[in-house]
Amino acid sequence: MSNTELSGFHNVKQTTSTNDPAEEFIVQFWGVRGLIATPSSDTSRYGGNTACVEMRVAGKRLIFDGGTGLRILGRSWLELSSPLVAHLFFTNSQSNRIQGFPFFAPAFVSENCFHIYGTAASNGASIKQSLCDQMLQPHFPYPLQVMQAELLFNNLASGSKVILDDVTIQTALINQNQRSAGYRVSWKNYSVAYMTDLYQGADEIELECIKQLIEGVDLLIANATYTPPTARSHEYADLLWKTAVNLAHQAGVKRLVISHHHPDDRDDFLDSVQTEIKNAFSEALLAREGLILPVVPRN
Rank of each mutant, 00 (worst) to 15 (best):
A157T: 06
H115A: 03
Y190L: 08
Q148R: 15
I205H: 10
N155F: 00
L156W: 07
D165V: 01
F114G: 02
L131S: 02
L240R: 15
K242R: 14
D203I: 07
L173P: 04
L198C: 04
I205L: 10
L152M: 14
A172P: 00
P228H: 03
A157N: 08
A125R: 09
F108G: 02
L156I: 00
L220C: 02
K211R: 12
D166G: 06
V167D: 03
Y226C: 12
D165L: 06
I221S: 07
L207W: 05
Q200S: 13
P138R: 02
E111R: 07
R179K: 11
Y142R: 13
S160M: 01
D166K: 11
N177T: 14
S180K: 03
T230M: 15
R184L: 05
A181I: 06
N155I: 03
H139G: 07
L247Y: 06
N175K: 04
L173M: 15
V162T: 11
N112G: 10
A120P: 01
N223E: 08
V245D: 08
K161Y: 07
E215S: 11
E111Q: 02
Y236A: 13
D218K: 04
S233H: 10
E111D: 07
S191V: 03
K188W: 03
Y194G: 01
V167R: 02
M147R: 09
H234Q: 11
E235K: 00
N189E: 09
L151D: 05
T227V: 11
S233K: 09
K128Q: 15
L156H: 01
Q250F: 13
S233T: 13
Q250H: 14
D203K: 12
E150M: 14
F153L: 05
V109G: 07
A237C: 14
G252W: 00
E111M: 04
P228Y: 07
E235Y: 00
I127Y: 05
Q200H: 11
A125P: 04
Y117M: 06
G182L: 07
D197L: 03
I205F: 08
N123T: 07
L131Y: 05
Y194S: 01
Q250V: 11
E204H: 12
P138D: 02
Q134F: 10
K242G: 06
G201D: 12
S180L: 02
L220R: 00
A105Q: 13
W241N: 05
I214T: 03
G252A: 01
D218S: 13
L144N: 04
I210L: 06
I205E: 13
A193Q: 03
L173Q: 10
H139E: 12
T119I: 10
A237Q: 14
L152G: 04
A251Y: 10
L164F: 08
L220D: 03
F108K: 08
T171K: 06
L239Q: 15
A181F: 15
V146L: 01
V167M: 07
F153D: 01
V146C: 06
Q170E: 15
Y236R: 14
